[in-house]
Design a protein around this nucleic acid. Structure first.
Length: 821
RNA sequence: GCCCGGGUGGCGGAACGGCAUACGCGGCCGACUUAAAAUCGGCUGUCCGCAAGGGCAUGUGGGUUCGAGUCCCACCCCGGGCACCA
């Protein structure tokens, strides 16, 4: 055995085979089962090519948690599936002509193979891909449920068109005016599209953030995205045309400071207002230029404030003043009413516009301790607002002004959101067909539930040409209207793939159900997800949509009432970098999990990725760092196999003589148990947990020749048991070698408090807060005794000569600090 | 501009207001070996000193405290998010 080597390529398949044969990680739905249940879920992978290092990280984190939950007595649901619809497979199909189903299914096979090879403890009985008809049937069913309640609706609107992907995109998928995937500048197009009415849930999506345990920065991003603003809608009448224009403002307290009025170039009334005023030509030119500019250029905050006068006025309802009207591109049609009252003294944008166009700037809020500089956006007493309000602090006056507007029917309290309804139609092939039939007589008619799924037809040409490729499948498109039986056409758009991933976690609870999307009892047993794990890049898109769909389904009575949120706890992992940069093929710095697993085994790959640093932070991959973890696992294996081969069977009792090195080693083992348990219990501190097991093994190795085999056996088996969540094959192997038992069937070890206490400790002796000496002190010693021990310490004594002791700070069990002068 | 993170050895990182630098990497020295690999052991913040020992170090500057990487104030740098949202 002396030359035996740690051979993960032999060990790992052996245990994987046991887990597969015995279906170890399958967990049936059993409402009568004793004990707590736990639903541990990592964000489902998009199957393309093969898994990358980020997948290895997310499943290493999730699996460690799943194992820890199991061994601390919980029944754990830990399933796997694939977000199988989407653009990359389809773009690949356009290039090669190969059906997206083929490349997707091939990728899924590769993902399955690698996940098994990594030894992730997955309940494979619940596996599915969102592209399977048995699954997307229910995606369509959910669409129809939303349609019934008016939450799925069609409307014509200015939408984001990605000219490269040739499809519309949701607001959330446009970043800095560019398509999230393609990077192409998006264009605004006026189109009729399907939307989900997520804005109706804006308030609850905001409020319920307080009920979930998510990282604060993710909650903040969602709050910002929803962008709730409280204020008032105020009506400004244009008397010359006899039209009222409401505006939204968060500062009705500044109404008396309004000196002009601005409309967005897209506002439908702009040309009508300018007509016949002499400004018509200038307005027309301005509007045309504004509409032609791309969204990025238009959105530049630093761009000078441009605009032209409309040649008309509106009346300020609070004081009857006539305010000149302008059109300017800093006002957005899509927020509020597309028109604003401008208060240049107290708004930076209005100030910039007024300065550029020579307009009046009228201060109405005083700056209590300022230098009188404008614009001033802070609070203070009102001025120039008439006797009723002058001198009143603006925040107090605000509700009074709103109340006055309501009494006069010139306005009302109002709330606005940044959030827009979720545009879910895509003019693309590889997605869930929208189950609607358009009938010239009956309008948009839902496909009857019994006719679901609406199967995705095969087409010859996947390329979108400004319309969905499905439109070419004419046999499929032309159907009889379910309502009147007359000739009708199917909806040819497919759904955004984020719809699929907004409910997949519900399906895992009852994945084999062919009668319904799920049985409520199954949902009741598992939901909400106790621990969700994934990348922070989904902080808005997926995580907001999933919350919305969950709430919408709960409101329809399709989920138990207590399921208001999908993910009770969220952990966002950082990225794995190489040389400080993202891994990418173009940079040529990609580390493939396959290569690492081939060379070192899955346990090394998994343990290293958790050891590299705090998992919520980005971490730089290091080739030599992997070697270090591999060496450590090899040491653990070697110690276990040497002890197993040596005299003394697995049932040898723990050493009776708890003294000397044996005691030291046993104490270290219990310390490690306490440390790893603390680190895993909701803290995700995997790096320090693994370091603790390394320390335990280091002590066992250092005391190799002085300790009894029983003590070493206990220490090594403990190390195996503690490392199991991070390196399951080796943990199982080493534990089995030493005890003949299966570590995953063992309860998580519990530290013996008596073993964590010591008779003596090292007393830190300080003078004026500086460490000067250390002495051994009895744990039972009182403050006086500790102070005396400290003063007697050699390095302390020498320094006390000629000094006056002012006072002594004694922290029992830790230190004594002598304050001297 | 606003809102979050984060700045600690040569590197990744550790540290309930109480021994800064755990653990790992790298480096140096040694053991084993004919040799190498593998493995094992020791040293490794920095400066002064033969040594004992001491000075200085957690982005910068202040403060609170017996004691600050940790708390407070101001600032600098890096990363991320939001950004003409009225």
């Amino acid at each position: 055995m002396a030359d035996a080597r740690y051979d993960p390529q032999e060990i790992e398949p052996r245990w994987q085979e046991v887990w597969a044969r015995e279906r170890t990680w399958e967990v049936p739905n059993d409402p009568t089962a004793a004990g707590d249940s736990s639903y541990v879920l990592e964000m489902l992978p998009y199957p393309s090519g093969e898994p990358h290092i980020g997948h290895l990280k997310v499943y290493s984190v999730g699996d460690a948690i799943a194992h820890f939950h199991r061994r601390t007595g919980r029944r754990v649901l830990h399933p796997m599936g694939y977000d199988a619809f989407g653009l990359p497979a389809e773009n690949h199909a356009i290039k090669t002509g190969r059906h997206p189903r083929e490349s997707t299914d091939a990728a899924i096979v590769e993902f399955q193979r690698q996940f098994r090879r990594w030894g992730i403890s997955i309940d494979w009985s619940r596996e599915f891909g969102t592209h399977e008809p048995r699954v997307y049937r229910w995606t369509q069913w959910i669409f129809l449920e939303l349609f019934k309640r008016g939450l799925a609706y069609q409307k014509e609107a200015a939408v984001n068109w990605d000219p490269v992907e040739e499809t519309v995109l949701a607001n959330e998928q446009v970043v800095d005016g560019r398509g999230e995937r393609s990077g192409a500048l998006v264009e605004l197009r006026q189109l009729t599209q399907w939307f989900f009415a997520i804005t109706r849930y804006a308030d609850r999506l905001l409020a319920d953030l307080d009920t979930i345990h998510w990282p604060e920065h993710v909650k903040t991003m969602q709050r910002n995205w929803i962008g709730r603003s409280q204020g008032a809608e105020v009506i400004f009448g244009c008397q010359s045309l006899g039209v009222d224009y409401p505006v939204f403002t968060t500062r009705p307290d500044t109404l008396f400071g309004a000196t002009f009025f601005v409309m967005a170039p897209e506002h439908p009334d702009v040309l009508r207002l300018a007509a016949g005023t002499g400004n018509e030509g200038a307005v027309r030119d301005y509007v045309n230029r504004a509409l032609a500019a791309d969204t990025q250029e238009r959105g530049d905050v630093l761009k000078p404030k441009t605009g032209v006068a409309l040649g008309r006025t509106v009346t300020n309802p609070v004081n009857g003043e006539e305010l000149p009207m302008y059109v300017a591109d800093y006002v957005l049609m899509e927020y509020g009413t597309g028109a604003i009252m401008a208060v240049p003294a107290h708004d930076e944008r209005d100030f910039a516009f007024a300065a550029a166009h020579g307009l009046e700037i009228r201060r109405v809020v005083e700056d209590p301790d300022g230098d009188g500089e404008l614009p001033y956006t802070g609070d203070g007493p009102l001025t120039r607002c008439g006797p009723e309000f002058d001198g009143t602090p603006n925040r107090e006056a605000l509700p009074e002004i709103v109340a006055w507007l309501e009494r006069e029917a010139k306005g009302r309290a109002s709330v606005n959101y940044r959030l827009r309804d979720w545009l879910i139609s895509r003019q693309r092939y590889w997605g869930t067909p929208i189950p609607i039939i358009h009938c010239p007589r009956c309008g948009a008619v839902p496909v009857p539930e019994d006719d679901l799924p609406v199967l995705l037809p095969d087409v010859a040409d996947y390329k979108p040409r400004g319309r969905s490729p499905l439109a070419a499948a004419e046999d499929w498109v032309h159907v009889a209207c379910p309502a009147c039986g007359g000739p009708a056409d199917r909806e040819t758009d497919t759904m955004d793939t984020f719809v699929d991933s907004s409910w997949y976690f519900l399906r895992y609870c009852d994945a084999a159900n062919d009668e319904a999307a799920w049985d409520q009892a199954a949902i009741d047993q598992w939901m909400p997800v106790d621990q969700y794990i994934g990348g922070v890049e989904h902080a808005i898109l997926h995580l907001l949509y999933a919350r919305f769909i969950t709430k919408a389904l709960a409101d329809s009575g399709l989920l138990p009432a207590h399921v208001q949120e999908p993910f009770a706890d969220l952990f966002t992992q950082g990225m794995i970098l190489r040389d400080g940069e993202k891994m990418s093929k173009s940079r040529g710095n990609v580390v493939s999990p396959q290569t690492i697993v081939d060379r070192y085994g899955a346990d090394t790959a998994r343990a290293y990725i958790l050891f590299i640093g705090p998992p919520d932070q980005d971490a730089d991959w290091s080739d030599t760092g992997v070697e270090g973890v591999h060496r450590f696992l090899g040491r653990l294996w070697r110690m276990a196999s040497e002890l197993a081969a040596a005299a003394g069977g697995p049932d040898e009792p723990p050493p009776a003589d708890h003294g000397g090195p044996d005691l030291e080693l046993l104490r270290k083992a219990h310390w490690a148990i306490a440390k790893v348990t603390y680190d895993l219990d909701g803290r995700f501190s995997f790096n320090t947990a693994i370091a603790a097991v390394m320390e335990l093994l280091g002590v066992a190795s250092r005391l190799r020749d002085e300790t009894s085999p029983g003590a070493r056996r206990f220490a090594t088996a403990t190390a195996a048991s503690l490392i199991f969540p991070f390196a399951p094959h080796l943990g199982a192997e080493a534990y089995h070698l030493l005890t003949g038992r299966r570590v995953w069937e063992e309860p998580w070890p519990v530290a013996d408090p008596a073993m964590l206490e010591r008779d003596t400790f090292e007393l830190v002796c300080q003078i004026n807060g500086k460490l000067r000496d250390r002495v051994e002190a009895p744990s039972s010693a009182g403050p006086d005794e500790l102070e005396a021990l400290c003063r007697a310490a050699p390095n302390i004594q020498a320094r006390l000569d000629g000094q006056t002791l002012v006072k002594a700070i004694v922290v029992p069990g830790k230190l004594v600090n002598l304050v001297v002068r």
